[in-house]
Design a protein around this nucleic acid. Structure first.
Length: 180
DNA sequence: TGATCGATGCTCT
DNA sequence: GAGCATCGATCAA
């Protein structure tokens, strides 16, 4: 899927290439593990297809998609995008120069990483709870179905989660250069 | 290329 | 008051 965000600064879009799943009460790494909604996590207890956005490390937002039934607080963290549209606006938001975007090593710095992609796409707490099937923030299918190989492995930076830290619940498009 | 560390403020206990 | 689903600067090699 391609994530699109329309703002008064302009539009940006990126193809999802890496995600992690957080499985609520089954998963010690999930913010919703305890099964009790808080002001931060309440949207995860609602219906699928809405945005769960949280602020982390005092500086960054992370963008998730609520992914299960009402009362089942599961979500998908989007960890990396491949930039599709609005690269100049992404660079501006990220404080990067567009001078050297012929190199993929420079383009990677736009949207490879959950904090980076939220900044590049202009996603903040204002997007909390938005439905993701309509503007301004929404997913669309790719124009062409492309045969892709999906790899999986442990999630990143959840060492506190005991046995759950080893669950292979991170997924990425094998070989895609925008994966973290 | 990889390891280490500081920034920075919200969230929950 | 402690910890955090991160990132970028810096240093060593």
């Amino acid at each position: 899927m391609v994530l699109v965000h329309q703002t008064n600064e302009g539009a940006t879009a990126g193809r999802v290439v890496e995600v992690e799943m957080y499985r609520g009460m089954l998963d010690k790494a999930a913010h919703s593990y305890k099964g009790v909604p808080t002001k931060r996590t309440e949207v995860m207890f609602g219906s699928a297809g809405h945005a769960y956005v949280y602020f982390i490390y005092g500086m960054y937002y992370c963008f998730n998609v609520v992914a299960s039934d009402i009362g089942k607080p599961e979500a998908i963290l989007i960890r990396a995008l491949e930039p599709v549209c609005g690269l100049e606006l992404m660079a501006k938001r990220r404080g990067l120069s567009t001078a050297d975007f012929s190199k993929s090593s420079q383009r990677r710095r736009l949207t490879s990483g959950p904090g980076r992609l939220a900044t590049a796409m202009g996603i903040t707490k204002e997007a909390y709870g938005l439905p993701l099937d309509r503007p301004p923030l929404y997913f669309v299918k790719e124009d062409h179905m492309i045969d892709r190989s999906v790899a999986s492995g442990p999630r990143i930076n959840i060492g506190y989660a005991e046995e759950a830290q080893y669950f292979p619940w991170r997924f990425w498009l094998q070989g895609n250069p925008f994966v973290t």
